[in-house]
Simulated scan of single mutants.
Amino acid sequence: MNLTDLRIFVSAALRPSLGAAAVDMHLTPSAVSKALRRLEASLDTPLFDRTAKQLVLNDSGQRLLARARALLALADQAKSDVMGERAALACRLGGPALLLWRHGQGAAEALRTWPDATLSLQAMFEDEALAALARGDINGAIVTGEAIAARGAEWRAGWEATPLGELNLQLVAGKTHPLARRKKGGVVEASSAQVLEHDFACPPRSLFCGVQRGARSDGWRDDQLPRRIRYWTDDLQLLLGFVRSGSALAYLPDFALVEADLVRIHVTDCAFRCTEQAFLVWDSASGAQWQHVLARTLASPA
């Protein structure tokens, strides 16, 4: 039994087919099949129930999977800690696109000490991110406090939720929007009546958890200030496109205002405030040195 065969086994256990595992490992299906047979021979027991189209883990395979993932995590940690800055790290972070947008540059900054490190940012909703972390597909999940509070079946012992700061949602407009002409000192002042004369863009699902909430998806209180939502899209870039062009307003986290062509609108008589807390969820118990550096860097105020 060797580490290479264990990695192939874990990939095959988590993928829907031998072919998918081969693509994941950059191998041929034949090479994957030989590695699995070699591992089974070394353990003197079958690990899969084989059908014509797929591999299904049997009870022995299920028992080995947890052990194999733990062994591989320890091996990766030992290698990166011993090699230090020479280690070729593969940092994989998952989470909602909004949160990856906010923290992607911070993650890149944390990895500058490792010249051969790679960073993969995988957009997915919060439950998907936690499930991917549990499978070992990613090293960390960036999620909101709501996902932390739920702590579903995917939550593992040893996981740590590192606070990454608060997101304050703001009403945002493009510089060509009619309300942007009222800008004074960097902020547009407008009443709710003036704001509600204009069209809005809104995602039909929460951009964090993916739940279908309609007009409530972005946190705006339509029960208090009902809007005219003309543009609906789950795609963040499309939504921002409507805002940048001046076609619509949107309710977005404050860090969106780093965009040079967006301005904040302060609604002078708005009685509600919407905030979200962001967290990095990762396995601090088995994390390598670079993962601790990543968590510290992302948690530090900019």
Rank of each mutant, 00 (worst) to 15 (best):
V32F: 01
V32T: 07
V32S: 10
K34M: 14
K34G: 01
L36V: 07
E40P: 10
A41H: 01
S42T: 08
S42M: 13
L43N: 03
D44C: 00
T45R: 04
L47Q: 01
F48R: 01
D49A: 08
R50D: 06
T51W: 08
T51I: 08
A52C: 05
A52I: 12
A52T: 14
K53V: 03
Q54D: 02
V56Q: 08
L57I: 03
N58R: 00
D59V: 01
S60Y: 01
S60E: 10
S60W: 04
R63C: 09
R63S: 11
L64C: 08
A66T: 15
R67N: 13
R69N: 09
R69K: 11
R69H: 05
L72C: 02
L72Q: 05
A73S: 15
A73Y: 05
A75T: 02
D76N: 11
A78E: 14
K79W: 03
S80T: 00
D81Q: 11
V82C: 10
G84C: 13
R86M: 09
R86V: 01
A87C: 11
A87M: 01
A88T: 09
A88Y: 10
L89E: 14
G94T: 02
G95P: 11
G95I: 01
P96L: 09
P96W: 05
A97N: 13
A97S: 15
L98N: 09
L99C: 07
L99Y: 13
L100Y: 09
R102M: 00
H103S: 07
Q105H: 10
Q105G: 12
G106W: 05
A108Q: 05
